[in-house]
Simulated assay, not measured.
Amino acid sequence: MSSKIVVVTGASSGFGKLTVLELARQGHTVIATMRDVDRRNSPVRAELIEMARKDGNSLQVLEMDVANDASVEAAVDRVVADYGRIDVLVNNAGLMPIGVTEAYTATDVERLFAVNVFGAVRTNRAVLPHMRAAGSGLLVQVTSLMGRFTIPFFGVYAASKFALEALAETYRYELGSFGIDSVIVEPGPFPSNLIASSPQPSDAVVLEAYGEVAAIPGQIKAHSDEQFDPANPPRPQLVADAIAKLVATTERRPLRTVVMPDGLDFGVQQINDAVAPIQNSVLKAMGMEAMI
């Protein structure tokens, strides 16, 4: 397996943290990016570097706020200056709002999309000129099962993941002729800090109007860990392993990879299998069969 230069966003915790460590273990040159590397996330930076060092691997941590154009451009420029190229970008940074959908103001939703959607657009736009020049590259977009279905109180989050799925699939078609692949990883319900750090809706008047219904999102957050069997908890490492496998793959990669905890099946693979022929038939009807 050839070593690749890999940039991972949102690497301070969760899937991102596991992914950078797994990729480093597999011999890739990994650049873990996150906000506040000199302040709030300084201990995380030190931990990641030390964990990689103990395994004999190299891992670099850079400041990147995916919601800020200048921050993204500075980080990508630094990586290209240091290594000459970027082979893989893993868009993992994200937020998960849980709340009454109507109570999220337009400003609330804009803040979410600034990270979950526009953040990926920023990082993709920053790396793609370098990938096109090299004639190769891989974009990995970490979405969610809720990029394919939605449930009450997760509507704003699902909307952002639906949007990212559409962008990722379109990149796949448009970038193929440049030797660049775009793939989607759809994690299922794994333990993470996303629920605990869920952004709250701002419109208190709307929340009051919903009465007892407005209390349900809080109950979901309070009991989120109870869905897991303590004797056999889900392993988030499965997501890192799936991403590492996609990075290592030299053959045609699947567009979508569903990663579920052991023993669970919410039917998303069936959704993907059912939709793919319809999508392909539309492209064929439009004379775009070569892009499939």
Score class of each variant (00 low, 15 high):
Glu186His: 13
Ala285Arg: 13
Arg256Leu: 06
Val88Ala: 05
Phe162Leu: 05
Thr101Gly: 08
Pro201Phe: 02
Phe190Asp: 11
Asp273Met: 04
Ala93Cys: 05
Leu48Met: 11
Arg125Gly: 01
Ser281Arg: 12
Asn57Val: 05
Glu102Tyr: 07
Tyr210Val: 04
Tyr210Ile: 04
Gly94His: 08
Gly119Asn: 03
Val205Tyr: 01
Pro152Ala: 14
Gln200Asn: 07
Gly211Arg: 04
Thr250Ser: 11
Phe266Asp: 13
Val37Cys: 09
Asn124His: 03
Glu50Gln: 13
Ala214Asp: 11
Tyr210His: 14
Glu174Ser: 10
Gly16Ser: 08
Val115Thr: 15
Ala240Gln: 05
Val185Ser: 10
Phe113Trp: 12
Arg122Tyr: 05
Ile184Glu: 08
Ser281Asp: 15
Gln237Cys: 01
Ala52Leu: 05
Ser160Cys: 10
Met64Gln: 15
Asp262Thr: 12
His223Ile: 00
Val37Ile: 15
Thr9Val: 02
Pro189Met: 09
Val100Gly: 08
Asp65Ser: 13
Val80Thr: 04
Asn232Met: 01
Glu289Val: 08
Ala75Asp: 07
Ser160Lys: 03
Pro236Ile: 03
Asp87Thr: 06
Arg39Asp: 11
Val109Gly: 03
Val156Cys: 06
Ala244Gly: 06
Ser42Gly: 03
Asp87His: 07
Pro201Thr: 05
Thr29Tyr: 02
Arg111Pro: 01
Val90Glu: 06
Pro199Ala: 07
Val121Pro: 02
Arg39Tyr: 03
Phe113Ile: 08
Ala290His: 14
Asp262Leu: 12
Gln227Lys: 13
Ala196Arg: 12
Leu62His: 08
Gly16Asn: 07
Asp225Lys: 13
Asp241Ile: 04
Glu50Asn: 09
Glu251Leu: 00
Lys284Asn: 13
Val72Tyr: 00
Met1Arg: 10
Val88His: 02
Ala24Met: 08
Arg35Asn: 06
Ser177Gly: 02
Gly176Val: 03
Gly94Glu: 11
Gly267Asp: 09
Gly147Trp: 03
Ala52Gly: 09
Val282Gln: 08
Tyr173Arg: 12
Ile195Leu: 13
Gln227Ser: 06
Asn272Ser: 12
Val213Met: 14
Leu194Gly: 04
Asn91Phe: 00
Pro217His: 03
Glu102Cys: 06
Arg256Trp: 02
Ala209Cys: 01
Ile243Glu: 07
Ser42His: 10
Pro236Val: 03
Val185Ala: 10
